[in-house]
Design a protein around this nucleic acid. Structure first.
Lengths: 204, 204
DNA sequence: ATTGATATTGGACACGCGCGCAATAGGCTT
DNA sequence: AAGCCTATTGCGCGCGTGTCCAATATCAAT
C-alpha cells in the first residue's frame, strides 16, 4: 500500500473500521477484517492503534458523534421548542438497523471493553443533555409541562432506545413505524402536549 | 465424573451454563468454561447439546423465564390492577446487574445466534403481554386511562429496559434508584394515575 | 546519490474457540 | 459373572483471535 502520512492513515483506518462495524457489528469486527477492508496488512493497524479496544472505541465515537451532530445540525434552523423536539424525532427515526445494532453491541461490550464503555457512556449523556436543553426551553416558554427535566429526558431517550432495540434485535415484533409513532406519543404524554403535536407533518 | 441419567445431566449442564453466564455474560460464555464449572470434560457438553447456540439459548430461556414466573407468582395474590402493576415494578426492580447484562448480551448476540434470538424475542413478547393484561384490567375497571393498551405496554417495557440498560452498561450515569423511581413515574403519567400511585409503600 | 527516518509488510506467537471422535469406564440386564 | 449399552473422557483438528517484531520499502533531507 502506498505510504501515507500518519494523519491521513489514521483517517483511512478508522473509516475502514466503521465500514466493517456497520456490516458485522462491533462484537464481530476483527483486526484482520479491518486490514482486508483497507487492503493492507494487519500489522499496520497496530502501528497506529495500541489495542483493538481503542480502535473500536474511536470508530464508534465517530459514528455516534456524527449521528448526534446530524441532529444538532437539523436543529439549528428551528426556534420553537416543540418544533425542535419534532425534528429530534425526525432525525432519530431515520436510524437504520445497523446503526442501532452498533449501539446494542456497544452496550453489551461495555462490560468487557473499558475504552468503549467510556465513549458509549459519554455519548449517551450528550444525547440526554441535548434532549434536556430542548425540554428546558419548552418548560421555560410554557409550551411544555414537566417538573423534572432530567428525569423526563432520560425517560424519552430510554424509550427511544428500548423501542429501537425491539425492532433491531427481534425483527418484526414491532415495526419501525410503530416504534416511531409510539415514542412520539409517549413524549407528548410526558410533556403535556396534545396528541399529534410531535407527529411528522407529512405522512410517510 | 459420576455417570448420570441424561435428564439429570442436562439439568446440571444448564445450571452450570447459567452460573457462567451470570458471571461473564452470554457473549463470553464458552464450552470450556461450562465444562470447568461442572468439573467435567468439554466433550460431554456436546454429547447433550448439538451446538453452543442451542445451549446458550436454553440456559437463557431458563433464566428469563424464572424472572417472568417470579413476577407472575408475586402477582397471584393481588387483585386490583394498580396493586398488580405496583408489584410488577417491585419485582422487576430487584433485578441485579448481572441479570440485565445477560439481556444486553442476548439483544446484541441475537443478530448472530438464531436460537438465542427466537428465545429472546418470545420472552420479550411475554413480558409485554403480561403488562398488557394488567393494564387491560385497569382500563376495564376504570382505574387506568389509556387508549392503546398494546402501545403503552411496549412503551413501559421499553422504558424499563432502556433505563436498566443505562445503569448496567454505564455504571453510575443514573442510579438504580433513579431508574426505578423514574420508570414508575413514567407509568403513572402514561396511565393517568396520580403521582405516587405506583411508588413502593415503604421507602427503601 | 547517500543517508536516515519511518510507514508498511507478513508471518510467528501463544492462546482460545466450537466441534468431533476413538477410547474408556460405569451401571443395568441377562 | 459376563455382556452390552452408553455416559464420559481427553485430546486433536482447523481455524480465528490480538499482539508483537524483524525485515523491507519508500519518501524527504542532506
Amino acid at each position: 500500500m502506498a505510504r501515507m502520512n500518519p494523519d491521513e492513515r489514521r483517517l483511512t483506518i478508522v473509516a475502514a473500521t466503521r465500514a466493517v462495524m456497520a456490516r458485522q457489528g462491533i462484537a464481530a469486527t476483527t483486526v484482520r477484517d479491518v486490514a482486508a477492508e483497507l487492503g493492507t496488512s494487519s500489522g499496520l493497524i497496530h502501528h497506529y492503534y495500541s489495542s483493538m479496544d481503542n480502535l473500536l472505541a474511536e470508530a464508534f465515537e465517530q459514528v455516534a458523534r456524527e449521528d448526534l451532530e446530524r441532529v444538532r445540525g437539523a436543529l439549528a434552523g428551528v426556534d420553537d421548542a416543540i418544533g425542535r423536539l419534532r425534528v429530534f424525532f425526525d432525525v432519530y427515526a431515520r436510524d437504520d438497523d445497523q446503526g442501532i445494532q452498533t449501539w446494542l453491541d456497544a452496550w453489551s461490550e461495555a462490560a468487557r471493553r473499558p475504552a468503549l464503555q467510556r465513549i458509549s457512556r459519554r455519548l449517551n449523556e450528550e444525547w440526554q443533555a441535548l434532549l434536556a436543553s430542548i425540554i428546558g426551553q419548552g418548560v421555560a416558554d410554557g409550551s411544555m409541562a414537566c417538573d423534572d427535566v432530567d428525569a423526563v429526558s432520560w425517560r424519552i431517550l430510554s424509550l427511544l432506545d428500548g423501542l429501537a432495540l425491539q425492532v433491531v434485535a427481534h425483527g418484526d415484533v414491532i415495526s419501525l413505524g410503530e416504534a416511531d409513532a409510539w415514542s412520539r406519543a409517549g413524549a407528548e404524554r410526558e410533556l403535556g402536549l396534545p396528541s399529534g403535536a410531535l407527529s411528522l407533518a407529512l405522512t410517510r
